[in-house]
Design a binder for these strands. Structure first.
Lengths: 210, 210
DNA sequence: TAGATTGTTAATCGATTAACAATC
DNA sequence: TAGATTGTTAATCGATTAACAATC
């Protein structure tokens, strides 16, 4: 059995949100065509994606069971067993992520936050902010696998290295740098400039056509 | 002449950051191999990318002129002529984006922010927050093309529709919903759940191998 | 039955990578 | 000259899409 493609994987959370909506509205089944229309995809793409995670598949004429898909995608994405994470850099963006309730739906739980500017402090949401020097011990003690980086670009690589040395295995990087990491570490560089480049180029194309 | 691929386009800002660093350090030329090593890419990929934006190309044995590449990528990405944008939803994430100095480097200038909760108010960084009802008039008056959405999922589609009706042509959506937009609108759904899905899956694969 | 829908196989499309001659 | 590096053509790889038989 082959692994799921990165593209399919990224579509699954989108499907799940939509399926949850349908579920709430009491809709029991849905066709690949309906899902495809919602997201401007080809129905075959949707069927291929769902074939990966669906046990029973769909039924000709009726489509897929909404409840089954919700359960199976949630399970596949690991939303049922929560992963712990630490966050470093409690500036504006870091605070925003700390305050975001949605992560619990995605099976992510930020257990501690760190900054270099403080000794133990309490932020506006009554969470402790620890000094960065406490990170290695805490990560080792709790066996945390995921690190979230929201520090300025200059310090991001140092924070990354510290995380890896402490035993972190996956890094979600929101600072505007491409971090250098060994191959046995999962890394996701969240690059706003890259996103904006795609958006701007499409905008330019649209303006040119009008 | 073909358009640049989405993938190439997304790599360009990454190259540019690195090239700016080299430039600051007084390094005058760089080979595609060096750039490729930095980002774990194939050198041919880098050369293809640079071929798109580079006038003179590189020289055998020496490589590419750093200064030329910096100028050409900046120009290509539109970092030299700034685009105006409006932002709706001045919560934590919205405030973080408003406060982010880096956008000016990317040719993006947020000229006004809006929220539904307020009449005209002053936020912590002394910027005005306008009531959402002021948006259509301001967007039309200033001819703003870009809208940034940082409201909760429930209100995102309504904000999106309002933006489009007001003449916005490109939407950068940070709310956890996939927005429905006509084909003549540029849209970038910034999907944290999709990113996290990719990271988690890699993490699972790494943990399994150990 | 008729028709909507599924799942699969084959064709297409696009991006990455390999191979290699050209050149400084 | 020798060797590093470029740019391009061809091969490979992977994802999307088209075609179509199976089925409820």
């Amino acid at each position: 059995m082959e692994g799921i493609s990165k593209e399919s994987l990224q579509r699954l959370p989108t499907y799940l949100r939509y399926l949850n909506e349908l579920h709430l509205n009491g809709i029991e089944s849905v066709s690949s065509t309906t899902i495809a229309d919602r997201f401007k995809l080809n129905p075959v793409t949707v069927r291929k994606d769902l074939a990966f995670i669906s046990e029973d598949g769909g039924k000709p004429k009726t489509g897929f069971s909404v409840a089954d898909l919700v359960a199976e995608i949630s399970e596949f994405l690991g939303y049922n067993n929560t992963q712990d994470a630490v966050l470093v850099g409690v500036g504006k963006l870091g605070s925003a992520l700390l305050g975001y309730k949605g992560f619990s739906n995605y099976g992510l739980n930020i257990v501690a936050s760190f900054d270099c500017k403080t000794d133990i402090q309490i932020d506006s949401t009554k969470r402790e902010i620890n000094n960065i020097s406490m990170l290695p011990d805490l990560v080792k003690r709790l066996g945390v696998n995921i690190g979230i980086i929201t520090v300025p670009a200059e310090s991001a690589q140092a924070v990354c290295d510290l995380m890896i040395n402490s035993g972190i295995k996956a890094i979600w990087n929101f600072s505007p740098t491409h971090l250098i990491t060994p191959d046995n570490i999962a890394i996701k560089n969240e690059d706003m400039a890259a996103s904006l480049a795609v958006l701007s180029q499409r905008l330019t194309a649209i303006l040119k056509n009008e």
